[in-house]
Computed example of a mutant assay.
Amino acid sequence: MIDYRLLQALSAVVEQGGFEKAGLVLHLTQSAISRRIKQLESVLGQPVLLRSSPPVPTAAGQRLLNHLQQVRQMETALGLTDDPQDLVVRLATNADSLATWLPEALVLPEQQAVRFDLVVEDQSVGLKRMKQGDVMACICASPQPVNGGAVMALGALRYRAVASPAFIQRYQLHQQFEKRISQAPCLVFNQDDQLQHQYLQHVAQAVPQRFHLCPSSEGFLKATLAGLGFGLLPELQMQSQLESGELVDLTPGYSLDTELYWHYWQSESPLMYQLRQNVLQVAGRFLSGSE
């Protein structure tokens, strides 16, 4: 069994950004903090910190920090602690959810001292964070739960292929559409993003010939408005631009729906249960096909 004083030292080093500051918070000397970290690593047989500036937890260190936060959440719910420190929830999410519906879901109905540590991953690969024990919950496109976890369907984020009027004119997409759209530059979020590839395969039996990597949901929208490329954007994110004519739907009636799921650990604290219910309620108002 791990001594929780060692985990508290690890948490303090990461949160405070160094051994000396961690010592001040825990009323210990810097050398005492260092000894506790070394003792923890000796127990585990592997490092828990990268000695960078500031120190960064290893994968094993992050799993321990998540475990400590779960314990703190349970203690708070049971009234076993008067410690006013914030509870930390580490959550993996896709960028488009973060740019649209998710922030409202993170505002919990009860006043609680909660800090979110949001990890942004493409919805196609976000589940790896759960498998690694790196996060407490995950929003992604996979319906398969990890070992020790459970999953809840949230609904679908609907995407449409859009471009600016100037882009359509520049690449003459109003004629010979299938040929020209496959040659026109598109925007891709990152190497894991396959939405544009799916779209071109569906409408033109082609793959992107030219694309710009744009790993920002807000930047993706602005780049599309500026005419840098065409791309698939969530309806939730660009509805006003469609209505105003700043963006044009390239294939009216066509959409790509990305099903989203909430993954969580079965050993769920009351705080994580409350968060899950809030996420389900807000997703039900914004995502397609949800109830």
Rank of each mutant, 00 (worst) to 15 (best):
Leu64Asp: 06
Gln194Phe: 09
Lys131His: 12
Gln277Glu: 14
Lys131Phe: 01
Gln194Gly: 07
Ser244Asn: 08
Tyr273His: 15
Pro103Ala: 04
Ala166Cys: 05
Gly253Pro: 03
Phe189Ser: 04
Arg180Phe: 13
Gly155Ser: 08
Ala204Ser: 10
Leu10Gly: 06
Glu178Cys: 06
Gly61Pro: 05
Arg285Asp: 10
Val162Gln: 01
Tyr261Val: 04
Glu246Ile: 00
Pro103Tyr: 13
Val56Trp: 12
Ala137Lys: 01
Leu87Ser: 02
Ser240Ile: 04
Met74Asn: 09
Gln175Ile: 13
Tyr273Lys: 15
Glu235Leu: 12
Ser97Pro: 06
Asp96Val: 01
Leu225Cys: 08
Ser182Gly: 15
Gly79Ala: 02
Val282Thr: 13
Gly148Asn: 07
Leu49Phe: 09
Ala226Lys: 13
Leu275His: 07
Gly253Val: 06
Gln132Glu: 15
Gly18Gln: 08
Gly18Ser: 03
Thr76Ser: 11
Arg129Glu: 12
Ala283His: 04
Ser217Lys: 03
Glu268Asp: 11
Glu235Tyr: 05
Leu154Tyr: 10
Ala184Lys: 07
Leu68Lys: 05
Ala32Ser: 12
Glu110Asp: 11
Phe167Tyr: 15
Arg51Trp: 12
Gly79Thr: 05
Leu280Trp: 12
Leu275Gly: 08
Ala59Glu: 14
Asp86Leu: 09
Met272Gly: 01
Pro252Thr: 05
Gly289Ile: 08
Phe189His: 14
Leu44Thr: 11
Ile181Leu: 11
Asn66Arg: 07
Thr29Lys: 13
Tyr4Trp: 13
Leu40Cys: 09
Arg210Phe: 10
Ser288Ala: 15
Pro143Glu: 00
Leu225Glu: 10
Met130Arg: 10
Leu80Asp: 06
Leu233Ala: 11
Leu64His: 04
Glu259His: 10
Leu44Ile: 00
Val188Trp: 01
Gly231Val: 03
Leu280Pro: 01
Ser34Met: 00
Glu178Ile: 00
Arg51Met: 10
